[in-house]
Design a protein around this nucleic acid. Structure first.
Lengths: 325, 325
DNA sequence: CTGAAAGCGCTTACAG
DNA sequence: CTGAAAGCGCTTACAG
């Protein structure tokens, strides 16, 4: 920077000013500095800048899932891409950090609270993640995707309306004349698990406990859950499955049991993920507004950085009718 | 840090020394500092440290593909995870940056050359990526995965033996009695495209040009390429397809043309990716040693950081026999 | 509009 | 083993 100043014939202060927007710098001076920068091949030292500005102009995207299955989920892709773009418009770089194991989470916790980033977008669906507490205690602004169970009243998050989406699907199934509607829930330590189940009960009221089975968001898990459901309640004529992947497994189980989908048993999924269109039959499901979710996450985080307090944003879902129900 | 020093009753220099391994610090002093750190809740300012050490203890994993299809590839997952773990053992954080668009690439280029990271792992299969030049001109150490066309003699990279792998597959097809073996290549501006085609010619010599068609690594592209191949050379009895995804599409085209796989036309893939086991019939393919690739990439990069010059590492592939050939 | 100067929070020879 | 001090490369009041 001294070089640049020398070549341009100005002080370091002036060089710094043109680097930071060029306010209060005369045209000629600005031009000279710009030329000097090109000539010297100068590149700013970000650490020095961050040391004085106390910000890094980057935020972390923390993927904190034991199983990083999310990676294979196209929706996750959309989310990541959306956040990157939104942030880029504000000249903020997004760093993806993966914290699959307990040890990873510690390392990442240290990293993000060490001043490397100004804030974080955290993707973690399971309850009781110590990561949120760590970020909190360090005072690092962050926003979560999905309602963080147990923390939803003191943490910023944006989520699809899981409960409302479940209501849409179950209402649709009932409107199609189905009378005995079962459900395969997600893990009950995730908001998707409890909220979608709540939506199911919202429209059906209390149901026979035999009609409710818990899955684990995997295809195999959905298959096993469907088998159990079939054993417990062979008379059911529809099932609301809390994720497309599980719905895909459920259909396999139904087929093996000799049931036709949707004629004998209608199947409704959730997510509108890739498998929804590749499965046979294609899935009737609930679409989550991922593009809007990412936009809102970034908006919320930027708000935090500017001093706003926390907030929750719930976005509506959409029923997508295909062949499975 | 002044607080810590005050509480511990030592100088800042001593605090810094325990922070950096505790060499040349007496037991009691070290203990006092440690207690003071806990008591004050002190957290190191990484920017200040990096400013003096001139390193950040982090490296970038740059995903520089126009289409970030890689994300959905489980192999990519293995690569990413492997690199993260290897680096973590050296206390280095891996930052994933995505540079899908031209603009992204610029931003990322600025970021990584701005001192934020000590080096980079770059994932970019297409030739002529300006990113490599940029990193080079900035003097940032990096290693690429896959042979960077046109830059392979002055850049560090680690790759599977594409040419040898293609030889394995084509030799296998011939050993099974197939006589008219076609091939669907990858884009010819990728090393996977040219090297696998070279391997094909290695075992077959010059072939009828009608037997060679270029695809784009997508399933749809493979389907279209197969149709073309079938039109040009309806007599073929085997085809070596340069990626599993394309092989999957090729099988669809064959089925539609009334050909049985492998009875009428045998199909050999490349990658041993997820689709290899989900396609019907399951694919006979070439496995790339992703775990070793990630380990070697990290080893090479760490070498660079320590001052080593560049090097290329080529790792052997493995023929995996299933049902399609 | 511009320069001189203080300061951001660390690390690391240097001297003892 | 320890402290005092210089310095890493910037930004930003402050004075003019």
């Amino acid at each position: 920077m001294d070089d640049v100043a020398a070549v341009a014939g100005v002080s370091r202060g002036t060089v710094s000013r043109v680097l930071n927007g060029g306010h209060n710098v005369s045209g000629p001076a600005s031009e000279a500095v710009r030329r000097a920068i090109r000539k010297t091949g100068y590149v700013l030292n970000q650490h020095a800048r961050s040391l004085v500005t106390q910000r890094s102009d980057s935020v972390a995207f923390i993927l904190s899932e034991p199983q990083d299955r999310l990676f294979e989920d196209p929706n996750f892709n959309i989310l990541l891409r959306g956040c990157t773009q939104e942030l880029a418009e504000h000249d903020i770089t997004l760093l993806l950090t993966i914290a699959g194991t307990q040890e990873d989470r510690k390392r990442v916790g240290r990293y993000v609270t060490g001043g490397h980033v100004d804030g974080a977008l955290v993707i973690s669906t399971h309850a009781g993640s110590p990561l949120l507490d760590e970020l909190d205690s360090r005072g690092l602004p962050f926003v979560a995707v999905g309602r963080p169970l147990g923390r939803d009243s003191d943490v910023s998050y944006v989520a699809a309306d899981d409960r409302g989406g479940a209501r849409q699907m179950v209402s649709y199934l009932r409107s199609r004349g189905h009378r005995t509607i079962g459900t395969i829930t997600g893990p009950l330590d995730t908001s998707g698990g409890v909220d979608r189940l709540a939506g199911y009960h919202d429209v059906l009221g209390e149901t026979d406990p035999r009609l409710v089975v818990t899955g684990d968001y995997t295809s195999d898990g959905g298959e096993a859950a469907m088998e159990r459901l079939l054993r417990q309640a062979p008379e059911l004529d529809a099932v609301f499955v809390s994720s497309d992947l599980m719905a895909n497994g459920a259909i396999a189980a139904l087929r093996r049991a000799g049931k036709r989908v949707p004629d004998d048993v209608a199947v409704g999924g959730f997510d509108d993920s890739k498998v929804a269109t590749t499965s046979v039959p294609r899935l009737t499901t609930i679409r989550q507004p991922w593009a809007r979710i990412s936009a809102e996450m970034v908006r919320l985080l930027l708000g935090h950085l500017a001093g706003d307090s926390h907030a929750a944003v719930i976005l509506p879902t959409e029923l997508v009718i295909r062949e499975s129900a």
